[in-house]
Computed example of a mutant assay.
Amino acid sequence: MTKPPIALEDRQQSGARRFSPSAGRNKEVIAQQLKTILPPEAHVLEIASGTGEHGHAVCASRDDISWQYSDPDAESRASEDDWRLESPMQLRPSLPLDMTAPDWWGGLPDYDAVYSANMIHIAPLEACEGLALGAAHILREGGVVVLYGPFLDESRSAPSNLEFDKNLKARNPAWGVREQALVKHIFAKAGFNGHRLIEMPKNNHIYVFSRD
């Protein structure tokens, strides 16, 4: 059986380490935003860490952060663990977390933030729901969920995001760029009533959720 793709782009590889063209373009601007969003001495759980470049960039910008990689894909975890070798005191060995698995948060410690980039549109909606539910279990008081990626905004949606949504649904009907209001509703059901959107390049956003 052919494995489903874990990315929608061609990636370079050196040993176990992978390089994402999109992460190469966005990791620094994301890191700059996370520098201001994350509290001091933050313990962060990243969901669907992919190549591992985002966590590496964030830790390079803030030496007080502890970053936990995770991914359901073994080859992605190997890449993340290779990037970890450059910051072994901050980056933690990757965990095989799957947001569609029941009680995926079982046995995990508490965190100050849960971060996920470009995951919820290349996964069934159950992955977003599982992310919200699990975050509610493992976030400390004052903790935040930070999502990065494209979102739809009804009639105000960017044409490029609408086209991307069609492309994703053609690949897999369970995928798709999610409406801002739907994501907001999913996290509100899990107790995250605070939310804010930060505009990012290329019609992407950072969506921050809190219990406020």
Rank of each mutant, 00 (worst) to 15 (best):
P109M: 03
I65S: 00
Y148G: 02
R11E: 15
R211F: 13
E163S: 15
P21C: 03
T51W: 12
V208Q: 04
I65K: 00
G107W: 06
S94I: 03
V146T: 00
R18P: 00
K166I: 03
K202H: 09
M99N: 12
R17L: 13
P21Q: 07
Q33R: 14
F192E: 01
V183C: 05
M200K: 01
R62I: 02
P124H: 07
A78P: 00
S155I: 14
N161V: 05
V146Q: 02
L91K: 01
P40T: 13
A23I: 01
A101Y: 10
H54T: 05
E86L: 13
K169A: 13
N26W: 03
Q90W: 07
S76W: 02
I122P: 00
H54A: 08
A158V: 00
Q33Y: 12
P5T: 08
P201F: 06
L139H: 03
C59W: 03
K3Y: 15
A74Y: 04
E199M: 06
G52F: 07
I186F: 07
W83G: 09
K169I: 09
A74R: 05
M200T: 04
D103F: 08
T51I: 01
I6R: 12
E199D: 15
P88Q: 05
W67K: 00
D153N: 15
A158L: 02
G176I: 03
D63T: 13
D82T: 14
V177D: 04
F19I: 07
R17V: 01
E154K: 10
A31W: 01
G15V: 02
T100W: 11
R25L: 14
I138P: 00
W104Q: 02
M99Q: 12
S61R: 13
K27F: 06
G50C: 11
W67C: 14
R18Y: 00
A190P: 00
G15H: 02
P150Q: 09
